[in-house]
Design a protein around this nucleic acid. Sequence first.
DNA 1: CCTGTCGGCTGGTCTAGACCAAACATGCGA
DNA 2: TCGCATGTTTGGTCTAGACCAGCCGACAGG
Lengths: 240, 240
Amino acid sequence: MAMRDQIARRITTGELLPGARLPSERQMQDGAGIARGTIREALFQLEAEGLIYRRDRSGWYVCSAPVVYDPTRWAGFMTYVAEQGRRPQTRTLSTAETPLGEAARHVGVHPEDPVYLIIRRRLIDDRPVLVERIMVNPALAPGLFQHSLDGSLTQILRTVYGVEVVRNQVDMRPCALVGAEATALEAKPGTPGLKVVRSSFDAAGRVVEYDEEYWRHDAVRIHVDIEVAPEVQARVSAAP
Amino acid sequence: MAMRDQIARRITTGELLPGARLPSERQMQDGAGIARGTIREALFQLEAEGLIYRRDRSGWYVCSAPVVYDPTRWAGFMTYVAEQGRRPQTRTLSTAETPLGEAARHVGVHPEDPVYLIIRRRLIDDRPVLVERIMVNPALAPGLFQHSLDGSLTQILRTVYGVEVVRNQVDMRPCALVGAEATALEAKPGTPGLKVVRSSFDAAGRVVEYDEEYWRHDAVRIHVDIEVAPEVQARVSAAP
DNA sequence: CCTGTCGGCTGGTCTAGACCAAACATGCGA
DNA sequence: TCGCATGTTTGGTCTAGACCAGCCGACAGG
């Protein structure tokens, strides 16, 4: 589609810089002599590619470069975002101690017993990029809510409660942002997103933290760097 | 959007099974008394969520469950897909020994010197799910094309050339499938995809394989399972 | 039985409107 | 100076068409 290519070119050549606002849909319509529906199709396309995003009833804007997330590194959001020269922020939206039914089993709690539930929103350079729903087993961190949750939760668990995470399980998949997640991210329901589910285990194999993150898909890139462990190396080489 | 929800429900409840074809857009239009543009918007939405896909000028179909890809495991495509009870296939689309300019530096080759370039398409249960463009340094694997590339390339490099991969660097980001990639995946240009770039290093730090993969975004899910190494554990605990 | 042609149906693309609701700037009044 | 009402602009949603190009099945001819 020609319209898409034209806008994409203006972005990649640097004519439109990150954060810049595109002309309004109606301006493009008149300027290019193209129906508005066609213009919007091109914009959706570029949104799906992560080149632009929209602010509801405000306009379309050029995306900044995504942050790089490495699930194999033991660095929290506040750390790795700052390392990349961006400004991370965390806002706790709600905390609750409440039964969660079957979902509680994720943190080893009986369905009828209460679980700590934390909902946080995280921003990069003042733009909301993810909301997360964290479940913690109250037995592992009694009185957790007395501490400020606007930083690294894992760090609180370690320094205050002596809970050491030794294993992470991370799952990622594309999704659509809907309902509360979309609202918290100032995104239109249906905007593409990335769902990241992380389970953190301590040395005893207990789930310390169960974390569901909903990311704006254009805000993050996944990068992992793996070196083979000596014993794995041996195993792989031995295989046919 | 109500239309989206209605179709999504029919899929999640199992009324529409994976592989099933949805009614044609015009049938839905007449059946629901909704304009075709509106119907299509709902379909695009579901496509972005990975619930349905389209076959050009044939119809819309329900997606099968995605395969799980773990970049930290030392298993190739043929292996992990089969492990998940699916049927993997590889077709080599083209091989060439040609200079690639600056891109050749990825495999440590001078821009004007030739590089082995392999383009492959891989399928799961007969559906094309990814195309890849592999660059190999000819000095590391002379005569590589004499071997069948319709299996594991890494295995050929190891068993035939004694080249051992000890480190992988993997990068993932959402993208749009365009041009040759879209064609090879039987996708309309602009369909959302996932770009995976992998660099494989040997013990000497040389890039053995540089691989750019374009995935259908609905065909794959990323999963990693990390245990902290003892020395990292110590380092993390010591941090403030 | 095989093959090639042709027409119907499908999605792909595009036009030209309409109305709505939220964001935002402006300016007025306290 | 501050706060609020208001009007404009913006994207969000939707309608009702049009024409194109590729897929595919039916059917006729060899």
